[in-house]
Write a protein that binds this DNA or RNA. Structure first.
Length: 689
RNA sequence: GGGCCCAUAGCUCAAUCGGUCAGAGCCCCCGGCUCAUAACCGGGCUGUUCCUGGUUCGAGUCCAGGUGGGCCUACCA
């Protein structure tokens, strides 16, 4: 087998790792670990993608250098990956000397091959920030439907697309300045000369998922390939183009080159030759990417590699997006879970297992269903698999395994045989199939244990050997299963190796039974998953997203024109005046029992300046007396009969004028007060959830 | 508007080249066991394989059309 160079897409240095990212890194890591376990030479290379306008803007806002920003983010990324047991051979950065050098080299060969051309491009320019603006840094009124506050490329109200230059009343989101049109020279790379080659290359068997090849063939390869704009004028955070001072390579130019640059760093560190990996037909390259960046990896990238005499990937594996409970990840729903938040609440092995158990080679979106997640991990991984060790190792803690492997009716041999099919599934990125087979093995192992019932034998004198034999079989079957799962669950494999005093690092170890070895005292290898922990994670992820808040506070613009009932211009001063309280948990929230109630009596309180005395009904005969500080705002007779919301389990409070047995909910900013009421149809006594 | 993918038990999914492929797990019900992390084992239940036509001795499996989902794009890549 040829040595294998494996990459995942480079995470961008402008944000933290979330569970969507983890799908890709888990997928790649399982593949890489499997390859290593077969004894194949395999290195897994990745890096932070560090260049571009976003990083530059962020650095400006934070008042520090881009280098400082990306260094912090790289450290955070690597912590997250390490904690999820993603085993890179090297993790680098596109902002490295090595990547810069490879960029120069590839650029030189593109120049030499006559692939580079200059052309003027007119773009919006922010005169205040002194920078050109990508579409998403411009907002304005949609030229089609008049919806305000739309991005520069399309309108999310009417769905129309347009050029940023068409926006009515455009504003830079960086400075608020009105962008102006400005022309600048850009450098373009042509890939059309490789058209025929790419048509053949993308469609060759096993190169990439079939649907991707179809998509390319029907879309881009069906017509002449357009030139690619690879430069951005200063200011830009990136590498300056050597023969075009003041121009920088667009982030997407140097990002994939980071694969090569990072490999070079690894080579330098380990005394390897980079050409053995990137300019050799003795090695293979596999890229794992998401479906959003197919274009770059299957057209531009191979063309660039070919032009510069590098090896082309033998496979581009593409996965879909992560959804949670069937929907896009959402911050308000708490399903946009950062890797760190997950790690704060749950064992990374759970997620690795769940991802593996559902991940096939197809380009399908992956739905993380929270209930299924808990259910699958507990039922398959803990109850069936790990429990196998738990239920049988105790009996042989003193004796160890039998000296020779007992007759097990062919179970071990069948499982050994399954190793080939499991291996094929891993190698084909069909992890779900591998897991299906493995869980089947666990089912058979549990049936065996039940059949021979070592716990019953243990109670009979003279059956010691049978007990030991039964457990020798059970633990060997367990060991096979965990060996097969080792690419997915390296920690479980390592800990099981400690339990059984054996190596767990090679796929082929599952072919030969373990005999005559000691067994360590059993300690829990994995706990059942608590639903509550998942809920807490979701809660923690629901944290108010400050990034979205300012939207509401955006300056109202008297939107002229037709009546636009979908448009509200609420000022943000109330929120600003009284910022959000610290986050509370769902548990905290449920402590507060709020009920719909009807005001059945309301009167002023003699001697009190602010209070009204209200009697509210919670339905039936249950009433409460509440003193509310709303005398200045409400006339008692206007309140009579109204449905309101009361906090019904508030501790009663003795006031000067009597006992107050609850609180009527009202909103206010200190100047005015508005009693909350329920929509019609609500009945007194209904709880607010 | 263009394109790609998908459609199998209540749920999640299997079913090599068209030939006992109509299955598994979960859920639910009944029974057993008690070694184990209330785990495990046995049994039972549920299907017009989206619809309509076609090819074939034979079709979830191939073809055509339709319906319903998902995704990608929208003379930017």
């Amino acid at each position: 087998m040829k040595p294998l160079l494996i990459t995942s897409a480079l995470p961008y240095a402008n944000g933290h790792i979330h569970l969507g990212h983890m799908l890709e890194y888990t997928q790649t890591d399982i593949f890489a670990r499997y390859q290593r376990m077969t004894g194949r030479r395999a290195i897994y290379i990745c890096a932070d993608d560090t260049h571009g306008t976003s990083i530059m803007i962020r650095a400006r806002k934070e008042g520090r250098s881009e280098e400082a920003v990306i260094a912090d983010m790289s450290a955070a990324h690597q912590r997250d990956f390490a904690d999820f047991m993603i085993q890179f051979d090297h993790y680098g950065s596109t902002n490295s000397a090595a990547t810069r050098e490879v960029c120069h080299e590839i650029w030189a060969s593109l120049q030499k091959n006559g692939r580079v051309a200059k052309r003027d491009v007119t773009q919006l320019f922010d005169p205040q920030a002194g920078t050109f603006l990508a579409d998403r840094f411009v907002k304005g009124t949609c030229p089609r439907c008049g919806a305000p506050d739309q991005y520069g490329d399309n309108c999310d109200k009417c769905g129309s697309t347009y050029s940023a230059t068409e926006l009515v009343d455009p504003k830079s989101t960086l400075s608020g300045a009105r962008p102006e049109l400005k022309s600048a020279e850009h450098l373009f790379v042509s890939i059309e000369p490789d058209h025929a080659f790419l048509t053949e290359w993308t469609s060759s068997e096993g190169r990439m998922p079939k649907e991707i090849a179809n998509y390319l063939a029907g879309h881009f390869l069906a017509e002449p390939l357009r030139d690619w704009d690879v430069s951005r004028p200063a200011p830009y955070f990136g590498f300056e183009i050597p023969d075009a001072p003041g121009h920088y390579w667009y982030v997407w130019f140097d990002a994939p080159i980071g694969y090569i640059g990072t490999t070079r760093e690894w080579c330098d560190k380990h005394g390897e030759r980079m050409d053995d990996w990137w300019r050799s037909d003795k090695t293979e390259i596999v890229h794992v990417i998401g479906k959003d960046i197919v274009y770059f990896h299957t057209l531009f990238w191979p063309s660039m590699l070919k032009s510069a005499g590098y090896s082309l990937p033998s496979r581009v594996q593409v996965h879909g997006f992560l959804t949670v409970n069937g929907e896009k990840m959402s911050k308000t729903k708490g399903t946009f879970v950062m890797a760190r938040t997950y790690l704060d609440h749950l064992d990374p092995s759970y997620l690795r297992y769940y991802y593996a158990s559902k991940l096939g080679a197809r380009v399908e979106d992956f739905d993380l269903n929270v209930d299924e997640f808990v259910q699958k991990v507990n039922a398959e991984l803990v109850n069936k698999i790990v429990n196998l060790a738990s239920r049988s190792s105790r009996f042989v803690a003193k004796t160890g395994l039998s000296a020779s492997y007992p007759d097990d009716g062919g179970l071990f041999e069948a499982a050994a045989k399954a190793g080939a099919e499991i291996g094929e599934a891993y190698a084909a990125f069909d992890f779900a199939r591998a897991i299906r087979i493995i869980v089947g093995l666990a089912d058979r192992a549990n049936e065996y244990v039940d059949r021979v019932a070592p716990w019953a034998l243990a109670k009979q004198a003279g059956k010691e050997q049978e007990v030991q034999n039964a457990c020798t079989v059970a633990l060997n079957l367990y060991r096979q299963i965990v060996l097969y799962l080792a690419p997915v669950l390296p920690k479980l494999a390592a800990e099981s190796g400690v339990l059984l005093n054996c190596a767990m690092d090679r796929h082929e170890l599952a072919q030969k039974p373990l005999v005559g070895t000691p067994v360590a005292p059993y300690q829990h290898l994995m706990k059942r998953m608590e639903v509550e922990a998942v809920q807490k994670m979701i809660e923690a992820s629901r944290a108010g997203d400050p990034g979205d808040a300012p939207k509401a506070a955006a300056a109202p613009e008297a939107g002229a024109g037709e009546a636009a009932p979908t448009k509200w211009e609420d000022p943000g001063d109330a929120l600003a005046k009284e910022p959000l309280a610290p986050q509370c948990s769902i548990d905290d929230f449920t402590k507060v029992d709020m009920r719909v109630a009807r005001i059945i009596a309301a009167e002023g309180v003699p001697g009190a300046k602010k209070l009204l005395k209200l009697t509210v009904s919670l339905g039936g005969d249950t009433t409460r007396q509440v003193f509310a500080g709303i005398k200045a705002y409400y006339d008692p007779k206007d309140l009579l009969g109204r449905l309101v919301i009361v906090c019904a389990n508030l501790a009663p409070r003795q006031m000067k004028f009597g006992m107050s047995e609850g609180m009527v909910l009202a909103a206010g900013d200190g100047e005015n007060v508005f009693v909350l009421s329920a929509d019609s149809g609500a009945k007194p006594g209904m709880r607010v959830h």
